[in-house]
Structures are given as structure tokens and as C-alpha cells.
Design a protein around this nucleic acid. Structure first.
Lengths: 196, 196
DNA sequence: TCGTTTATCATGCACTCGCATGATAAAAGC
DNA sequence: GCTTTTATCATGCGAGTGCATGATAAACGA
């Protein structure tokens, strides 16, 4: 048997390079050559790990999703359902450099998913999980008396998640400052917890 | 003087072709050749009306904005501030074929604005006008007794607009059906008008 | 030690890109 | 009629693209 290489690690390493290229120059200028240079390897090496550019992009998006999921799961909060819900929402917004990076890359994939079915399929698969997480926290908050009881957890999750997603671009282009976004999120959350 | 041509009309005509190409094959595959073919003219003709591809895209985005603005302004509603607000929100969502077209093209420009400053500048200029429109309607609705008085019109406008924007991609990739989106919008609006 | 398998590379190919160039046609003033 | 200005076109160029190919190196089993 030949040289031992961790395939999954290599693929993740390449996916990271894809993310950096998207962040720096946009998804349009993602080419096998650019990615290879960013990853510090030759173009042939990149080719070795993916059937083609599309597969590379699909895995890069999948890798971003797990990366964001892991960071959200590890985010600090006060231990209450409402606190967890709030943190999980704020983690989606480009409020610091790390989240700004992920938001830029994520928005690029989001837009491409409109014309690239494999990416759309990935989003469609992940969406129920994300929404279920939010509605679960809402239900838990209601059970803990942190939220008004007659809210519809599913609809509230839909509204909150879409709301956060819709804040991403205005933040990225500099329309809102970070504190404006936090204030808006807290404004909506306070309504759910105090009933006005 | 030579052949008389309405420059603005030609530029709008080309911008329309850009929109159709984006809708059909995505912003990535917008090239001078594709646009020229879609517009039924030669590549040289397109070059004649724009300094370069970037200028063409910038004007295409501007043209889309005015197109959407005009349609929203002409949308039918019940004459009340709340009704106008509702219609203005629903007009942003891809709920029928015309709005689906605009939403697809609009999302493509939105994503590119992250790495294309001229597009970001356009969005930043337009955003205050849009938000002012929404907050004006909220204030009017409050004055007319259609909405709870102690809402913050500015923050409500921010939440509503971002919420609607965040629904666009899930609708485009088929996660929500049109009626789901309408129900979510009405859910949030009902809270503003009934105080729960 | 030799052969097999894998990893990595440099290079070539057909294609597309944005843009520049020069030619042709058309319309108006002189 | 002739010139000038504008509109439109076909074509060429250098650069970059995704992908295929063949060579080289490395690591293990036989």
C-alpha cells in the first residue's frame, strides 16, 4: 500500500481554502487553480480529491454548515432556553470577524443554491433540523415560563430564523452596525418573553 | 447627426436581458455574449452602451430596483396603512411567477453586493427609503388605531423587512410553499395589530 | 528487491471570457 | 454629393477556465 493520507482531512483542508477564496474574492472567482494555490498544493492534488468543481463546492458548503453548527453548539449562554435561543440567533449574524467570514461564505452558497440543485438539496435537508432546534427552545422557554404560552413555536421559529437571515446582508454591506442588529433581535425576543 | 437611438431605452432593454440570463442560468453565466444573444443583438452593440461588464451589471441592478419599486407602488390593497404594509411585504416574496423572477434576480445581486462595492452602495442608498416607507406605514397604522401604539416603528420596520428578505431563499428552493410564507407574515403582522 | 498502488505534479487541450480593433451601414448637416 | 457622427457588426487577442493525460515519487506487500 502507498503513501498514507487522511482523505477526509485533505478534503476538509481544501474546503477551508474554498471558504477563504470566497471570502476574499467571491464565489465567482473560485477556480481549481485559485483553490489549489490558497491550499498550498498543486492543481492536480485538488483534482485528486474531487470528481470535479461542483463536487468540491458541494462539499465546501456541507463543511461550512457543520462548521457553523459546531460553533453554535459550543457558544456560551446562560443555560436557559431563551438564552440559548438568543445566542443561536446571534451566532448566525456577522457580528465579529469569525462570524463575518462565515456569513459572507454562507450567503454566497445561499445565492448559488437558487441555480445549483445539489446546494439547494443540502439546504432543504438542513432547514428542518435548524427550525426544529429553534422551535424546541421556544417550547422549552414556554414550559419554563420564560415565554408567553400561546405562541406558535413553529411559526415563531420560522419568523426568527428568516429574520436573522435577512439581517445578514444589511450587516455585511454596512447598513447596520452590530449593536443595531443585536437591538433588533432583542426587540423581537423581548416581545416573545414579555408579551409586549 | 446619425441614426437616432434612445440610449436609455436600449440600456433598459439590455438590462432586461441581463435579468433573464440571471433567472435562467444564474449570475455566474452572465457574459457579454450571453446577454447579447438574449437581447437579440451583437456583442458589439452591448459594448457600445456600457463601459464594461461591471457597469452593465450595476445598471441592471438599478433597473431591477426601480422595477420592483414600481410594481410595489402599483399593487392593489385595501387602502389602509396595515393593508398597504402587508401588500408591500408580500410583494417582495416569490409567490407567483413575476415575483419569483424578481426574487431570483434580486437575490443574485444581493449576494454579489458583498464583494462588489458599487452594488453594495446601491443597496445602502435604497435601504433607508424602503425602511422609511415601512415605518411610515406603521406609524400611520398606529394613528389609525390599526396597530398597538407602543411599538417602535423603526425597529418594527427593520424586523419586518429582514424577515421578508429571509423568507426569499427558503421559498425559492422550495422549503416553504407560498401559503406558508403568507401565513408567517400574517402571524407577525397580527401580533402588531392585536398585541398578541 | 520488486511490483503495485496511491499521491502529487506539470503540462496540454479545447473552450470561454472581457475587451480592443477595424469595417460597414445609416442618418443628418453642409 | 460629401463629410461627419453614430450604430452595429465580425473578428482577434491574451488570459483564464475545467478537465484529461502522462510522468514522478513514495510507501507498502510479496
Amino acid at each position: 500500500m502507498p503513501k498514507i493520507v487522511d482523505h477526509e482531512a485533505r478534503r476538509r483542508q481544501i474546503a477551508d481554502a474554498v471558504h477563504r477564496v470566497i471570502d476574499a474574492r467571491g464565489l465567482d472567482s473560485v477556480s481549481l487553480r485559485e483553490v489549489a494555490a490558497e491550499a498550498g498544493m498543486s492543481m492536480g492534488a485538488v483534482q485528486h480529491y474531487f470528481a470535479g468543481k461542483d463536487e468540491m463546492l458541494t462539499l465546501a458548503m456541507l463543511h461550512l454548515n457543520t462548521r457553523i453548527t459546531l460553533r453554535v453548539a459550543g457558544a456560551a449562554h446562560d443555560g436557559t432556553p431563551l438564552g440559548l435561543l438568543r445566542v443561536a440567533l446571534l451566532e448566525l449574524l456577522p457580528l465579529d470577524e469569525e462570524r463575518r467570514f462565515e456569513a459572507r461564505v454562507g450567503l454566497a452558497f445561499l445565492a448559488r443554491s437558487v441555480v445549483a440543485e445539489p446546494l439547494a438539496a443540502l439546504l432543504r435537508e438542513g432547514m428542518p433540523l435548524v427550525l426544529a432546534f429553534y422551535s424546541d427552545q421556544i417550547r422549552a422557554a414556554q414550559a419554563a415560563g420564560q415565554m408567553v404560552a400561546d405562541l406558535d413555536p413553529g411559526l415563531e421559529a420560522t419568523v426568527l430564523f428568516a429574520f436573522a437571515q435577512g439581517m445578514v446582508n444589511p450587516l455585511l454591506i454596512g447598513h447596520y452596525r452590530a449593536e443595531d442588529a443585536v437591538a433588533a433581535i432583542d426587540y423581537q425576543l423581548r416581545r416573545l418573553s414579555t408579551g409586549r
